[in-house]
Write a protein that binds this DNA or RNA. Sequence first.
DNA 1: AAAATATGATTGACTTTTTCAATCATATGG
DNA 2: CCATATGATTGAAAAAGTCAATCATATTTT
Lengths: 162, 162
Amino acid sequence: MPAPTTAEAATSSQPTAGNGVERLYSTDLASEIEFLTARARSLGSGRANNMLAELDLKVRSYSVLSLACSGQNPSQRELADFLSLDPSQIVALVDQLEKRGAVTREADPRDRRSKVIAPTAAGRRLYKRAEAIVQQASDHSLSALNEQERETLRDLLRRIAF
Amino acid sequence: MPAPTTAEAATSSQPTAGNGVERLYSTDLASEIEFLTARARSLGSGRANNMLAELDLKVRSYSVLSLACSGQNPSQRELADFLSLDPSQIVALVDQLEKRGAVTREADPRDRRSKVIAPTAAGRRLYKRAEAIVQQASDHSLSALNEQERETLRDLLRRIAF
DNA sequence: AAAATATGATTGACTTTTTCAATCATATGG
DNA sequence: CCATATGATTGAAAAAGTCAATCATATTTT
C-alpha cells in the first residue's frame, strides 16, 4: 500500500474517512472551486438525504415542501424554474406530497392553467420536523465553520447561485 | 399573468433569467447554504458540461483525466473515493478515456489487483485544452466575485468538502 | 371576435446516472 | 495453508434527467 505523502490528520468530517486519498488533496482539481462546490454539495445532500429518510423525504421533496410553506404561493412552473427542475419532475414531486396529504394543488384565479402548491396542516407539521432535521444535517456538514464564516459562505454562494 | 412582486433587475448571471421567480429569493430555502451550494454546483457544472462538450468530455471525465495528469498516479479505487463515485462508474469513465487513447491502465507492482491510471501524450494535450475550457467556464460562473472573494470561497469550501 | 400563438400542467418514452450484488484475481492475517 | 478482505469488473435494477406531444387556458394578432 502506498504511503500517504503528507501526514494529514482527520481534522474535519467523516467523508472519505480512513481512506488513503489525502495524497490527492494537493492536485489542481482539488482546489478548483467548481470541484469543491460539487463535493460539498454531494456530501451535504447525501447526509441530508440520509437523515430525511426517517420522514420519508429527500432534499428534493423537502425543497418543494419548504417553498409550499414559504407563504409565497408558488406555482408548479415557479417551482420548476427556481429549483432548476423539469416541470415533469415537479409533477412527480407534488404528486407524492399530495398523496401523503402534505400539500394541495389550488387553482389560481388569475390563471386557471396554473396550480398553486399550498401546504396542509399536516404538511406544515411535517415541514417543521423536516426543517429541524435539515438544520441538524447542515450543522454537521458545516461544523468546520463558525457562524461568521457560514454567513460569509452564504453570501458568496448567493452571489454565484442567482 | 401574475405581476412580479419586487422589481429586481438582472444583476447577475443568466440562469433563471427573465423568469418571475425573484419572489422566491426571500424564502428560507433560498438562504440555506446547502441549497445555495446545490444551485451553484448545478449552474456551474451545467455550464462546464456545455463547454466541455466540444472536446467530447464532461465534468466527470475531465475530473478523471485531471487526476490522471496530476502526477499522483491514482488507482481506480482512489479515484472512486476521491470523486465519491461508485467503483463501477470509474470503470466506465476510464473505459471511455482509454478507448479514445487519453489514458492507460498500468499495473501497480505493489498490488497486482490495482490499476493505476496514467495519461498518454494525447491525454495530456487533451487535458491542457480541457483545463482552459474549464477555467473559462469557471470564470464565467464566478464572474460576480473578485479574486479575493474567490480565494475566500475556495478556502471555506475546502474546509467543508474534506 | 376569430384565428394564431404561447404557456402551465401532464403524460410517456427514452437516456443517463446511481446504487447494489455477485464474481474473479490477488493480498493479507492468522 | 486457510480464511478473510480488497480492487476491478460486470450486470441488473432504481432513480433522476431530458424531450416531445397533448390538453386546457391565456395572450396576441388580424
